[in-house]
């Protein structure tokens, strides 16, 4: 069984999912960052594959992509980072990437390399289900969950189409906009989570704009099975560039707080 499916089967509380750009600030330090996230309590680890033109990402993750690329992070390096983490952790790993990096490598090769690196799910941010026949086939062959986004703008008909084609979990985009932190979770977001909860048994992971313990609690109360925190983590890395000890301490403290908010929530 895929590690993602097993996680949701075996746990009653929601999953705290932490994101970091693989290779930020550089490939070696990035492995230490990811280990810190896991040690501090991240239930599912999301690794971003840095891309030169990340149109779905806000400035914080754009800068992280640039740091990673400047440090020489290739897709090969990202797979090596995942492999290093897999060697000493059983945590589910989801890879976030952009379409061109998958096509460039060859779809079949990309998913074979992902499986070999111990990756459990792949989300291609700029590939809607309509264009995804080839990648879903390759994902299935490799035993990797094809993860898809559902946005507040997604129509009921297309929600059904996505639900029928996704596995692992559904990634609910909580706000209209790019990644980045927001002050609060809007009532519409909670209504969106409740609406999706009524449509599918697939685990629901809510991301984009989640950064505070209160966000986590309200999403989980509305029916989320996981919350995804990205920009807030990446911002901590950015704030502590040049002082790795401080960086790791700050990451651990933040993850512990957020993880506690998730663990106390019902599911």
């Amino acid at each position: 069984m895929n590690r993602i499916d097993r996680w949701f089967l075996e746990h009653a509380a929601p999953a705290f999912t932490g994101f970091t750009v693989a290779g930020d600030p550089d490939p070696e330090a990035s492995v230490r960052v990811a280990r810190t996230l896991v040690d501090a309590g991240v239930d599912i680890l999301e690794l971003g594959m840095p891309f030169s033109d990340p149109v779905a990402d806000g400035p914080v993750i754009q800068r992280a992509d640039q740091r990673a690329l400047a440090a020489g992070t290739t897709p090969d390096a990202v797979f090596a980072i995942a492999r290093a983490l897999r060697a000493d952790a059983g945590v589910p790993i989801v890879l976030l990437t952009y379409c061109n990096l998958v096509l460039n490598r060859g779809i079949g090769q990309f998913y074979r390399d992902a499986r070999e690196a111990g990756i459990d799910g792949v989300l291609i941010v700029d590939m809607p289900v309509e264009e995804s026949d080839g990648v879903r086939e390759a994902a299935r062959a490799a035993g990797i969950a094809p993860i898809f986004l559902v946005a507040p703008t997604t129509s009921a008909a297309r929600q059904d189409g996505i639900i029928a084609r996704a596995s692992g979990f559904l990634y609910l985009v909580s706000v209209l906009g790019v990644t980045g932190t927001r002050n609060r979770v809007a009532e519409e977001t909670l209504a969106f989570i409740r609406q999706m909860r009524s449509r599918t048994a697939l685990p629901l992971a809510v991301g984009f704009g989640i950064s505070e313990p209160e966000h986590v609690a309200s999403c989980c109360e509305a029916g989320a099975d996981a919350v995804i925190v990205g920009s807030a983590i990446v911002a901590i890395i950015e704030r502590h560039l040049g002082d790795e000890e401080e960086m790791m301490a700050a990451l651990s403290a933040y993850i512990a707080t957020m993880r506690a908010a998730t663990g106390e929530a019902p599911r």
């Binding site: 264009e131 898809f148 946005a151 703008t153 297309r158 996505i162 985009v173």
Partner: peptide
């Protein structure tokens, strides 16, 4: 959920989900 019209194999609609309904 048909794929979008193309020119030969070129084209398509490779965008984040949020933009799909607008397109």
């Amino acid at each position: 959920m048909d794929s979008s019209p193309r020119f030969g194999h070129f084209g398509g609609r490779y965008v984040p989900e949020t933009l799909m309904e607008a397109l």
